[in-house]
Design a binder for these strands. Structure first.
Lengths: 254, 254
DNA sequence: TTTCTTTGTGTAAAATTTACGCATTGAAAA
DNA sequence: TTTTCAATGCGTAAATTTTACACAAAGAAA
């Protein structure tokens, strides 16, 4: 990240931060990207501060690129967290002690652990494309299954809860999958994504009918081979129609 | 407001503000509350800063109480505005000059017109209950019909646009009316509210059937008299069921 | 060659949404 | 006092959408 942390903070908004819940889909499960703070076992969401000359959205993009190696990640702002005590839900004093053991006493004075309002974003990424990369504060960055997410620092568990709710809401009103699946995928794979996000099962015949009725998918002549069953067709999104359906809004009513 | 502005700002977050789009419903139209800045003809949304010891939601409530005289206003955070130039969409230099003519040169240095991220809320209120009250910066506070809203200061026109979109989205997934209508109202009045928010017409027979199917309304024995037609029944929301329906979420599909 | 799991496809029933008519009421007009 | 007129209350049929469900075919594994 930045060579000199204090220099960076001089060029950034101090009372506002942003945090990103990065969703990936792998082996039938939703995953989120978490970071472990240096010298501690405390985990948090990827986040950071907004530079004086960049918008909040630009900052979220910059941070996401740094953490994932990806450009043009799908990003959605969903809520801003402004509780007085949002930094004190968890024992930040212990965390601070451990961090100061690593960085030196007083290092973080005036940098973190003040009153900060945080803008929450969620991101949708292709799991396989991500290169999880720790930042200046952390020495580990990796995927966690949503079900296994531990107690996080600050109010980040609440952030994930809200991000997931926002994602579900989005899924009910827009097509989903372009950002979470590889370019080509089978209908059962797409269905599993929907089932995972919305946490319910669908009849595969009705699911196929509904999805095809949106006219955003193209069935290819290829099939996925190798599994111990009938080879399923591969599909891909027709980007223009996918975007159009997203702009107009569809109602996934199943 | 505060007797000493600079004293207030010492106890508040400086890089974060919040702005409220206050919706009222009157004579079949949606209205919003706007403020005219002292000594100028520039209008803006009601807003303010967050005190160090209050949450963003508390601040929004405090500000709304100050502007409307109401407690416990229905408030919903909908978006945070973080563009770099959100204070420069409009000729803020001219505004600043006029304000300094009123308050004295340099009065606002370090107080306004810096880089500020603003949290957008919308509020739903009973039009008749509101006592529009200007704040420290303004000398007029009044309702405007949504259709007549002029060019506002900063990015406040965009804020209203987004607030309205959020309100429409909310209306499609939750019951609406408890906060916008008086306690007792007729079915045609409720229908007109829906038609105004969603900007389309409904068949009154189907509308009545659908609304009654939610089981959130109670028909009273009273009727509204005085108009040159058949006296319509009065209805009122059953608060518990209204809240329950709001928590579960309903789908207004018409 | 057989078995077993998964995929591809279509149709009928149920539920929901939409369209629409007529009698009634109450103030205003005649 | 009577008539008129606009708005309200109530119910049913048609159209559409959603849901439920069964059987044949493919392909790897046994």
């Amino acid at each position: 990240m930045e060579h000199n942390l204090k220099e960076f903070f001089d060029k950034a908004l101090k009372e506002v931060s942003l945090d990103c819940t990065v969703f990936g889909f792998h082996e039938g499960e939703l995953k989120v990207l978490l970071l472990r703070w240096k010298g501690t076992d405390g985990w948090s969401l990827p986040g950071g501060h907004i530079l004086l000359d960049e918008s909040a959205d630009d900052a979220a993009n910059r941070i996401l690129t740094q953490r994932t190696g990806l450009n043009d990640v799908y990003l959605q702002q969903f809520h801003t967290f402004g509780n007085v005590n949002r930094y004190t839900y968890h024992p930040e004093n212990e965390l601070l002690e451990k961090l100061e053991a690593t960085f030196g006493k007083g290092f973080f004075d005036g940098i973190i652990f003040r009153r900060v309002v945080s803008i929450g974003y969620y991101a949708l990424v292709e799991f396989d494309q991500v290169q999880p990369t720790p930042d200046w504060f952390t020495d580990e960055c990796r995927w966690w299954s949503l079900a296994d997410v531990p107690n996080l620092l600050f109010d980040h568990n609440e952030m994930i809860d809200r991000a997931l709710k926002a994602l579900r809401q989005h899924t009910r009103n827009h097509p989903i999958g372009y950002n979470l699946l590889p370019e080509k995928f089978t209908m059962p794979e797409l269905q599993r994504l929907y089932e995972t996000i919305l946490d319910r099962q669908f009849d595969r015949r009705n699911f196929q009918k509904l999805l095809m009725s949106y006219d955003i998918l193209e069935r290819l002549d290829e099939k996925r081979v190798g599994a111990a069953n009938k080879s399923p067709y591969l599909y891909r999104f027709v980007k223009e129609k996918y975007d159009q359906a997203g702009a107009v809004g569809i109602s996934f009513s199943m």
